[in-house]
Design a protein around this nucleic acid. Structure first.
Length: 564
RNA sequence: GUCCUUGUAGUUCAAUGGAUAGAACAGGAGACUUCUAAGCUCUUGAUGUAGGUUCGAUUCCUACCGGGGACACCA
């Protein structure tokens, strides 16, 4: 409906004022103002120096003639300081309800990026560091953006970029060999994480440890067959399995991995090829010096004086590998915003090597998660692990379900716990820090993941009881007061589109909350299954609601339990 | 010190330059005896400070104050 209203307004403006202006057609904040509204008169007022209400009235008069109006429009009116409000006919809503049901899982799907190829990189783990609550934040946002990309009509490939080689990793290997011997086989990620932490400490204040660790690092970088290399390979495959298990539990799947070790080799090669064209030598290292007018970025080392690629060069290698496959339209990557300055330098340098590397890259950055006010550092330990948090929350869910004397499937318990967790992350506009406190951040009541699930489950339960089918003739209802549920329902595709345009899942969250509230309020005051003539339509509306919720939750990476 | 980013009820979060700044939690009150009470209804309460641009500023600009981050061989 939004496009045809836009067209109607554009034509009217053209006719009266003979100009083209940029204006908004949007859902008013207050539903009583109508289903759509435009600020075009306010914009024109500036141009023509005429009062906005006068302009609005002129346009409304012109648009109100039946010949020019698109079907489904019931009323156009001037309101407030000069807004033009559009109210839709109830037939429009009932037709839409039918459309929602027949489209099913495709309802709300956009075509803004139809035919395009998008690469999404997220959840990149540092092998040997356990997957902690901060990684869950990256995963939740990344997974949702991945799903939004798929819902945009594009062909999407999802990858992860594990950090599999570093000095820190050699420190962990050192501890493992010392403590457990060369034949150690990893069975628990915590042992590796502890080794990492211990290695970091030991390295700091012991020179003999330092030289031994560097020796190990050399063997790892050169893939030299040695006890530490064998140990490293065992640990690496164990870690990848661990990573896949935990991300699968969170609902993610990766098509491919690009390892930092590969990207490092590639990156070094590219940086050397582009020296001195792009990079310059300085103090034995190879650095990128930004342009004079780029005060916002710093000089950065790409290859250190030992000749090893740094993080910066690895990212150049990563870019080259991302773009070496089939042609890409966008390459989206998700990190926390601590890394923003780093990527500004990398992309500035990348632009000079291959301009599409920076032009087609989209860096989505989110805030960081602090834990009960404490900054988190996986090197120092003390950070809650993802699995521990999920398990703890799952226990609470289970207890609550028992109190309510309900049996829940284990898979549903997990789904509810994960919904609570993901919701606490996705509800906020990305970019802001989240202070995570399991006591207060994870709620099952009010604005929460479980609230959204519960509303959907309840609707589904009614549908099961009623044996609803789409064939029911529900469009013939006479007495019907359009509800807030329908009024919100029709805007789902616009919300999805905006979330895609801005790569911001939180628009979906905000919308689903509003929708669920509208439904729960309606549910509380209406009997849906009854003998009235409206009952089939009420069931259809319930179905359309459940479908919209399910589609929206899917975009957030949250699944809907069978019961709760 | 330079640059980036952020500041909204007691708390956690919303609000493409527009209509009366919305929710939830916490606090207070209530309904139901009806399809799932993880629900519904009512209620108390907020834009860091000072200027500026605009018909109109939480939103844009400037300064200050308070968080967070980056500043060359870690990732």
């Amino acid at each position: 409906m939004e496009p045809s209203i836009r067209e109607l307004v554009t034509k009217a403006v053209q006719e009266v004022y003979g100009v083209e202006v940029v204006f908004a057609v949007e859902q008013p904040k207050d539903l009583t103002h109508g289903d759509y509204s435009t600020n075009v008169a306010l914009i024109l007022a500036k141009l023509t120096k005429v009062g906005p209400t006068e302009i609005a009235q002129k346009l409304v008069d012109l648009m109100s003639t039946p010949e020019v109006q698109p079907p489904g429009l019931a009323e156009i009116s001037v309101a407030g300081i000069g807004f033009i409000n559009f109210t839709l006919a109830k037939e429009f809503f009932s037709t839409k309800v039918r459309e929602v049901i027949s489209k099913g899982d495709e309802w709300g799907k956009s075509s803004v990026h139809a035919g395009k190829h998008i690469l999404v990189e997220h959840s990149s783990p540092n092998l040997f560091k356990p997957f902690h609550i901060g990684h869950v934040m990256n995963n939740a946002i990344g997974e949702s953006i991945d799903r939004l990309a798929k819902f945009s009509g594009a062909e999407v490939k999802t990858i992860s970029f594990p950090s599999d080689i570093s000095l820190g990793l050699a420190k962990a290997i050192f501890i493992l060999i010392e403590k457990y011997g060369e034949d150690f086989k990893p069975t628990d990620i915590a042992i590796l994480g502890d080794a990492y932490v211990e290695g970091t400490k030991r390295y700091e204040d012991d020179e003999s440890v330092q030289s031994r660790v560097k020796e190990i690092a050399d063997n790892l970088y050169t893939q030299n067959p040695s006890p530490e290399w064998t140990m490293y390979e065992r640990c690496k495959s164990f870690n990848i399995e661990y990573f896949e298990r935990i991300t699968a539990r969170l609902g993610s799947h990766f098509d491919d991995y690009i390892y930092e070790s590969q990207a490092g080799v590639k990156g070094k090669e590219i940086v050397l090829q582009n020296t001195p064209a792009v990079f310059t030598e300085s103090e034995g290292a190879i650095v990128y010096v930004p342009e004079e007018d780029r005060k916002d970025i710093n000089t950065a080392v790409f290859i250190n004086s030992q000749g090893n690629p740094t993080y910066e060069a690895k990212d150049i290698g990563l870019l080259s590998m991302k773009f070496s496959g089939e042609p890409l339209d966008f390459s989206i990557f998700i990190t926390d915003n601590q890394q923003v300055p780093h990527f500004q330098v990398v992309l500035a340098a990348a632009h000079k090597i291959q301009s599409e590397w920076s032009e087609k890259s989209i860096h989505v950055h989110h805030g960081r998660m602090s834990f009960k006010g404490q900054k988190m550092s996986s090197r120092l330990g003390g950070v809650p692990l993802a699995e521990t948090v999920i398990d703890t929350v799952s226990e609470e869910v289970k207890e609550k379900a028992l109190r309510d004397a309900q049996g829940l499937r284990p898979i549903d318990i997990d789904a509810i716990a994960i919904a609570a967790l993901k919701f606490s992350i996705l509800r906020a506009a990305a970019g802001k820090d989240i202070n995570f406190d399991p006591e207060t951040s994870l709620s099952f009541e009010g604005d929460s993941g479980p609230y959204l699930q519960y509303s959907t489950v309840r609707a589904n339960s009614i549908l099961t009881k009623s044996s609803f089918s789409l064939n029911t003739e529900y469009l013939t209802i006479k007495e019907w007061q359009t509800t807030e549920v329908e009024k919100l329902l029709i805007h789902f595709p616009e919300v999805v589109e905006r979330a895609i345009q801005e790569w911001s899942p939180h628009f979906i969250v905000t919308y689903l909350l509003e929708l669920a509230q509208a439904f729960n309020s309606w549910y509380g005051n209406t009997k849906i299954i009854d003998d009235s003539a409206e009952s089939p339509y009420k069931l259809a509306l319930t179905k359309a609601f459940a479908q919209t919720m399910t589609n929206g939750l899917t975009l957030l990476g949250i699944s809907v339990p069978e019961k709760m």
